[in-house]
Amino acid sequence: MRIAFYGSSLLSSYWNGAATYYRGLLSDLARRGHRVTFHEPDAFGRQQHRDMDPPDWAEVNVWPATGEGLRAALARAGEADVVVKASGVGVYDAELLRGVMAEARPDAIRIFWDVDAPATLAELRAAPDHPLHAALPGLDLVLTYGGGPPVVEAYEAFGARRCVPVYNALDPSTHHPAPADPRFAADLSFLGNRLPDREARVEEFFLRPAAMLPGRGFLIGGNGWHDKPMPANVRQLGHVGTREHNAFNTTPLAVLNIARDSMAQVGFSPATRVFEAAGAGACLITDAWVGLEMFLREGEEVLSARDGADVAAHLAALTPERARAIGDAARARILAEHTYARRGAEVDALLREEAARRRERAAA
């Protein structure tokens, strides 16, 4: 099938945490014979911070973030058998949602793909005039980055015909063990952009343990942290491109995952970082959230923490040997159960099932 996907960016991970997710899923769908066109705006400096060239498995249409550019991008929705509007494009989101669905052919499969479902659902509850309220009855599928049963129930209560979580995963061709790099040497590392609904949890789960363990080395990567006061034993890297993620994850004793507020509250929402770190064989420490056991076993494949004191205790007790054993076990589990090949197979089956349903309706 021809898939027109309207999202934030395929070519750049700059202020774009969904890049790895898009790349893993869409490249697998292309390997299954689907023809993917990714429509992304030239916005937020992402085109100036590309960490990927246009791939051979997708056409990438970079459109000017202007009214004229929007209209030209929308016009191409009519070319596709499947049209997808992702959440969080960042510019013209409401116009894209209405326009993509309006321009789609009558027989096209219409999908809203939510890469931040807890936040979107909070917006729907707060805003009766949110454009998604009007769009949901006409959509064939809502796919989500995660969220489990709470997100499915909430979307269906808002009128979605069908909501299916498609979780983050690992592409072992891009994220894997790598030689250690002295630039990333630390006892505990964290990678994530500074966002309003994450900052307090970073203070608790990362900066507090750093203050509690002044003799240990801490490393933080991501945009926006340059003017954040931090303990003296914390080094800041700024943006870390995806090409460096493997060394970033492989080098330190342990890597920390911190969920955003909404995702931690809903649960069932592992970030891409969880799979990237596990794929590199890192010893992962994560803040605790409901549904973790669906992906990794506590104490054997991951260490979970209720607060900063738990993080500090885990780190103080961690030996290189145990860290290596946890990282190896996590990598084996993720490779066996949570790859983008598996996720791509799930989406491919959903598309084929929906296409068959349409044929049946047309024949009736």
Score class of each variant (00 low, 15 high):
Met1Tyr: 07
Tyr6Met: 00
Ser13Trp: 03
Asp28Pro: 02
Ala30Asn: 05
Val36Glu: 00
Phe38Gly: 02
His39Ala: 04
Pro41Phe: 10
Arg46Phe: 01
Asp51Gly: 05
Trp57Glu: 04
Ala58Cys: 14
Ala58Pro: 13
Pro64Glu: 05
Gly69Phe: 05
Leu70Val: 03
Ala73Tyr: 02
Gly78Cys: 09
Ser87Met: 05
Val91Asp: 11
Glu95Gly: 02
Met101Ile: 15
Ala102Gln: 14
Pro106Met: 06
Asp107Cys: 13
Ile109Gly: 01
Arg110Gly: 08
Phe112His: 12
Asp114Leu: 01
Asp116Gln: 04
Asp116Ile: 04
Asp116Gly: 06
Ala117Gly: 05
Thr120Lys: 09
Glu123Met: 06
Leu124Trp: 04
Ala126Phe: 11
Asp129Cys: 00
His130Lys: 06
Ala134Val: 06
Ala134Trp: 08
Leu139Pro: 10
Asp140Thr: 09
Val142Trp: 05
Val142Ala: 01
Thr144Ile: 01
Tyr145Val: 01
Gly147Ile: 03
Gly148Ile: 07
Tyr155Ile: 00
Phe158Arg: 02
Gly159Pro: 09
Ala160Asn: 01
Arg161Glu: 05
Val164Asn: 08
Pro165Cys: 02
Val166Tyr: 01
Tyr167Leu: 10
Pro179Trp: 05
Ala180Trp: 01
Asp181Val: 13
Asp181His: 14
Pro182Asn: 06
Arg183Asn: 03
Ala186His: 12
Leu188Asn: 15
Asn193Trp: 07
Arg198Leu: 13
Val202Ala: 12
Arg208His: 10
Ala210Arg: 09
Met212Phe: 01
Leu213Glu: 00
Arg216Asp: 07
Gly224Thr: 03
Asp227Lys: 15
Asp227Phe: 04
Pro229Leu: 14
Ala232Val: 08
Val234Gln: 10
Leu237Asn: 02
Gly238Asp: 12
His239Leu: 07
Val240Asp: 01
His245Ser: 13
His245Lys: 13
Ala247Pro: 06
Thr251Pro: 11
Arg260Cys: 03
Asp261Trp: 04
Asp261Val: 14
Ser262His: 05
Met263Ile: 02
Ser269Pro: 07
Pro270Val: 03
Val274Leu: 14
Glu276Pro: 08
Leu284Lys: 05
Val290Cys: 09
Met294Gly: 09
Met294Asp: 13
Phe295Asp: 10
Arg297Val: 12
Val302Thr: 15
Leu303Asp: 13
Leu303Ile: 15
Leu303Trp: 11
Ser304Thr: 15
Arg306Pro: 10
Ala312Lys: 01
Ala313Phe: 05
His314Tyr: 08
Ala316Met: 07
Ala323Asn: 04
Ala330Arg: 12
Ala336Phe: 01
Glu337Gln: 15
Thr339Gly: 00
Arg342Val: 01
Arg343Glu: 00
Gly344Leu: 07
Ala349Met: 02
Leu351Cys: 08
Glu354Asn: 04
Glu354Ser: 10
Arg358Val: 03
